[in-house]
Design a protein around this nucleic acid. Structure first.
Lengths: 332, 332
DNA sequence: CTGAAAGCGCTAACAT
DNA sequence: ATGTTAGCGCTTTCAG
């Protein structure tokens, strides 16, 4: 921080008190038009930038929301971020984003940083580690201390706060049914890298329920591997061994990408006719590969909803009646 | 901001002065081991989180760097961000990121926000608007006021600051030559959505120079359209009208995606044999499409270099000897 | 080893 | 319409 123009600096030059300068800049009605103009012009001239630290310290709030997401390379989270920013921006709030990189430790540090005065409230999507280990102590402590918190995507019943989720079970059921009914698939498998996460489990449940409805066994129909390359290899083997596979339900973006990649490669080598793939992924992927059927989770909308909830919570003072909002995904 | 445990609060309970508490928490040698332990334990117990605003206000620096990038959905910028974060993290600096969404106006506001006390220095990649209009006033003003600034990717000679760029001209030349020499392409076109940006121009120059070297005319060999859909359509037409096209050099990620998509579609419909595509894109795209030849810009490395430069600049006090570091891209 | 006090830049209640 | 003053929570110099 370099030394910069301050209120006191300007007040000296202008021969006015600090408070007069301050009030002039906030366009207070207490100050005469003339003085206000004089001050404002001068401030502009010396490129005055108010020190928001000082203001926040004094005011007791920052008009800033903190966001913690696990991974910025995942377009889902990137789009959620955009939705949040858009809404906050409109409402004169700023956003500070931290990326946990799926690490509990990094998440914990970010949480500390953000809450150390920076933000009025937090929007959180738990890191993989946090959710797999179900170690939510940090967030819970914050909530106990009355920090407004909204969680999305990866949440837990154990935590008492506002939440935004999607209809994981139903859309997975629908997507699987779509493969069966609309595309005539008889031999469907599911690929997933999120089998250990709550929403990943829901998606598997939806998948299984759909198979069950059509009397298809779901024995060894789910290929769940966290590592993308492992997933790719096992999937290749699986399809080579069972040329009847005609449909894939992919439970997350990377699973979609790997599944498509495998399918394309096999088709290219005439090892399999075209497999129909439906899965959770961003518009971009589906645009890129026209044969892919995308499940749109409406990440921007999720972002907007979380942002709405956090502002509402901040304004309400109320620590009760936590809301869980469900954004409906749909098949494109 | 909720009211939280403060130094003064704890000092009362512990029957110590504020300064003793403060010193204990920073493990000062002035304080007895016993007292330190007592204070530290108590602080932990009441979940004390220091108010970093107050500390920064007092200390005059924040240990925080601001980052402004044009677009978070572009994996290039997302990866640069990761590199920056990684390096800063190691050096106990925090990062605040703002996304300009390619808008000059948004960029300008972010600049104001970040410099209003939040950050010790800034890493900036100009928005498209800013660069196309060549309106760098905001950044220039900041630099004049001695705010440490590092720019990357999209920069301008007119701005006096540290910079990190890639070898746009050379790698574009090499990539084009690769198509000609290694892949035997005779009829190459270039696709670009960044023809109006400095690095986009350099890439076009490299492309043209390579064609020239092999005595290939570059007349109407460059398809430059900002809008992805337009690019897609024109490219489709172009290839349909000229079935001899056998190579594409794509100047940016989205151009790669659109080019690949068009090529795949045409191949599928037997309207063209396979076209070789080489272009600037992320690992993910190249993994997704094995036939694609990716130019890796090493975004994480770029991030690390910018971060190094900004910390160096902050520490040096010196306002001279600005460095431009070039990170070499390579063909995978 | 511990404490008192000043001050970072700003806001806002309270004079004048 | 303008000025005085206290204080947000913290660090740091200086005294004891």
């Amino acid at each position: 921080m370099q030394s910069r123009t301050t209120l006191s600096g300007m007040s000296k030059v202008l021969n006015l008190s600090i408070s007069t300068v301050s009030k002039s800049l906030s366009d207070s009605s207490e100050i005469s038009k003339l003085t206000k103009k004089r001050v404002q012009d001068f401030a502009l001239q010396c490129n005055y930038i108010p020190n928001s630290f000082a203001a926040s310290l004094r005011k007791g709030y920052t008009n800033t929301i903190g966001l913690i997401i696990p991974n910025i390379l995942n377009p889902f989270y990137a789009n959620v971020l955009l939705g949040i920013e858009k809404y906050l921006d409109k409402n004169d709030y700023k956003l500070i984003t931290s990326i946990s990189n799926e690490s509990r430790h990094k998440e914990s540090r970010s949480l500390k940083n953000l809450t150390s005065g920076y933000v009025d409230g937090l929007i959180i999507c738990a890191s993989r580690e946090t959710e797999v280990m179900s170690r939510y102590n940090d967030v819970m402590t914050l909530i106990e201390q009355d920090t407004p918190v909204v969680m999305f995507d990866r949440t837990s019943e154990r935590i008492n706060c506002d939440k935004v989720v999607i209809n994981d079970y139903k859309i997975s059921f629908d997507a699987t049914e779509y493969l069966i009914k609309k595309r005539g698939c008889k031999n469907i498998i599911m690929t997933s890298q999120i089998s250990k996460l709550g929403h990943g489990k829901l998606r598997a449940e939806g998948f299984k329920a759909a198979l069950k409805k059509y009397n298809i066994s779901h024995e060894s129909r789910i290929l769940a591997l966290d590592d993308p390359h492992e997933l790719k290899h096992k999937l290749t083997d699986l399809i080579k061994n069972d040329p009847n596979i005609d449909g894939i339900f992919a439970a997350n973006e990377m699973a979609v990408i790997q599944s498509t990649s495998v399918s394309n490669l096999l088709t290219l080598n005439n090892l399999n006719k075209n497999i129909v793939i439906v899965g959770f992924c961003s518009q971009l992927q589906s645009e890129y590969n026209p044969s892919l059927i995308a499940i749109n989770q409406h990440p921007e909308k999720i972002g907007i909803e979380t942002a709405k909830l956090i502002l509402k919570r901040i304004k309400s003072e109320n620590k009760e009646n936590y809301i869980t909002r469900t954004v409906s995904a749909n098949i494109i």
